Simulated scan of single mutants.
Amino acid sequence: MSQHHLTADVYHAYQIVKSHGIPEKNIIVFHYDDIAHNKVNPTPGIVVNTLGGPDVYQGVPKDYTGIDVNPENFVGVLMGDKTLKENNKKVLESGPNDHVYIYFVDHGDEDVIGFPTDYLYGEELNVALKYMHQNNMFAKLVFNMETCHSGMGPSC
Rank of each mutant, 00 (worst) to 15 (best):
A139I: 02
N73S: 14
T83Y: 07
G59T: 08
D81T: 05
I27M: 15
N26I: 08
Y57F: 15
N97A: 10
V91S: 06
V40R: 12
H107I: 04
L6N: 01
G66N: 14
D63Q: 11
K130I: 08
T43Q: 15
S19K: 14
L129I: 13
V91H: 04
V112I: 14
D81C: 10
N73P: 05
T117N: 14
L129W: 09
H99D: 12
V56I: 12
L141T: 08
Y32G: 00
D109M: 11
H4R: 00
E123H: 10
G21K: 07
L78K: 01
V69F: 01
E72H: 06
H12N: 11
A139F: 09
N26Y: 12
K39G: 08
Y121L: 04
K18N: 14
D111P: 04
E24P: 00
E124Q: 14
I27D: 12
G122V: 06
N49V: 10
H4M: 02
D81I: 05
H12T: 12
D118H: 05
V69E: 00
Q58Y: 12
Q134E: 15
E93N: 13
D55E: 11
Y64Q: 04
D63G: 06
V142R: 12
S155E: 08
E146P: 02
K82W: 00
Y32L: 09
H20A: 04
G45Q: 14
T43G: 13
L6T: 00
Y131I: 11
Q134V: 06
Q134L: 13
A128R: 03
V40Y: 12
D55L: 13
L84H: 09
V77T: 06
K82M: 02
Y131M: 07
A13Q: 05
N136D: 14
F74D: 00
D109C: 04
H149S: 12
S94H: 10
D106L: 01
C156T: 03
K85A: 11
T43D: 13
G59W: 11
V40Q: 13
H107N: 02
E123W: 07
A36C: 14
H20W: 10
V47G: 03
S150L: 06
I16V: 15
